[in-house]
Design a protein around this nucleic acid. Structure first.
Lengths: 290, 290
DNA sequence: ACAATTGTGAAAGAAATATAACACGTCGAT
DNA sequence: ATCGACGTGTTATATTTCTTTCACAATTGT
């Protein structure tokens, strides 16, 4: 295990003592700003380290690489791996299962999706989206497609509690034009559209946009064509080892949004939630305890 | 300050809107593991992004560089500069947002949930659940509650494609007893029940159990009372900084299950999926591309 | 003075890049 | 439906750059 888990930087450090003058000079220069300097041309590295070109060539072979390009490839690999957050480096999430088990492979992919999605999100846009959704002065429409209507429904169920004037529209239903009749300028549409993008959804978005509505789009990394009409576009990475796409990242953003919106509207929401709880108590739909 | 402090990654993000399909594909690939992928040979980048070599060449010029090597030099500069700043900062997921922003707080909590949930899952039970769900010899019932029916529906939509004989039952509906009339011994029930646990769901589970059905329960860390009747019980941690519980972890497990079941049934599923694609193509419900 | 190390210069060879020409498909306008 | 503009991939080629390796001189330490 001393072999595999070792970074190139470690290996250089280790052999630092056995090196000759020029080699050590080179090694230290590589470590100086690691790994950037090793990723340039060989000649540049030689110049920066103030050693000759052949010295560099001999050195990389001493490190066990067949040539300089191979050494660079090693550095790039390392850099790629480092890009992942420490927490993301778990190779086994389900500790009892082998790392090749679908539980680990899938989770790994989802964590990656989350990392990349969050990394490229603009907090200002996100906040703006939350503000739009929280704005009770305008009606809120929530639109989902064939698969995504489940996410839309999830958002709807929560929004229904948090604020009045919420409607869930299913773009695959042929009744949606009726809803649009009531849409007024300034109304807010939360639209879910991931590949394969649905024509109905696009048409709905176009009509809504034409009526002066503002659109918040939840889509994938390739972005539904709706994004051209959207006020805010939140794109999620959805790639997993499966024949299907993943909605987990979208769900995460969704719940974060729900939490944020709720905070914005807390004074009103509080009363509404209490009322709802009362109603549930009365209907005895739920158990108080196990 | 908007000029100088701009990283290449920022610039790519900015122009993302104005890019064409192949260019965006390339841009996303560059950002995928940034900056490692941009430091390899041009041809390798092109291959990874699944675009042609000239596309990359055209793109770097569009970014304002005289050639690919100059672009790489820019990346190296950036990398060198980054190495000098104190590292840390890796605790934020949405890098552009302060660590106290809800995006980071919420994501942190969800990652925790995932880690803890996966850590205590028994892979054997999980595999058993998948096998039960994949078993086409028995009817599959999927049961959700007031909120969780969205998750149930999500599972249902996928299972519908993967195998025959699937029914989605909503425990809050008063029609569910009708479904149970058809339930036979050995049939499989996937039941979602998180707090607050629903009386209807428990009753349904009891009846199903009495008829000799096997129950797979998706619940929270405190486990719905249904768990005493369940063949397999998958409990999820669902605590987040919100007035609501999180379904993200459940969604993750769900999708993993879908992927696993699909692999088990691949021979049958393949044909079903192709058939479905054909039908979609014919109805023109979906767009092929942007 | 000897051996090991290192640098110089050069040249062959390999690899990567830049560019051009052309074919194909998509999309929108007419 | 037809045309043309546009984007893109393919193929091919010229050109540059980078790498590798050689022989040999210079330097250093022993």
């Amino acid at each position: 295990m001393t072999e595999t888990a070792q970074t190139i930087s470690d290996r250089i450090h280790q052999m630092l003592d056995d090196l000759t003058r020029a080699e050590r000079q080179l090694a230290l220069s590589v470590l100086e700003n690691y790994p950037a300097s090793g990723l340039g041309p060989l000649a540049m590295l030689a110049r920066d380290a103030e050693v000759s070109v052949p010295t560099v060539a001999r050195m990389v072979q001493k490190l066990g690489y067949k040539g300089y390009p191979e050494f660079q490839a090693g550095l790039r690999e390392e850099l790629k791996a480092r890009g992942k957050t420490p927490i993301a480096k778990h190779d086994t999430w389900a500790e009892a299962a082998p790392s090749g088990h679908i539980l680990n492979r899938f989770t790994e992919a989802v964590i990656d999706n989350i990392r990349l999605t969050l990394g490229q999100i603009d907090p200002a846009s996100f906040d703006q989206a939350c503000a739009l959704i929280a704005d009770e002065a305008h009606h809120l429409y929530i639109v989902g497609g064939r698969i995504t209507h489940t996410l839309a429904e999830y958002l709807f169920l929560h929004m229904q509690v948090i604020r009045p004037d919420v409607t869930h529209v299913q773009s695959t239903s042929n009744t949606w034009p009726h809803y649009l009749l009531n849409a007024k300028e300034g109304d807010v549409f939360v639209i879910f559209d991931v590949r394969r993008y649905e024509n109905n959804t696009l048409k709905l978005a176009e009509l809504a946009h034409a009526r002066g509505a503002r659109i918040i789009l939840m889509t994938d990394q390739w972005r539904s064509p709706v994004h051209q009409l959207a006020t805010v576009c939140l794109s999620n990475r959805i790639v997993v080892p499966s024949a299907w796409d993943s909605a987990t990242t979208i769900m995460l953003l969704l719940e974060t949004m729900i939490s944020a919106v709720q905070t914005l509207n807390w004074s009103q929401t509080k009363a509404r939630i209490e009322e709802l709880e009362d109603m549930f108590d009365q209907t005895k739909l739920f158990r108080k305890f196990t």
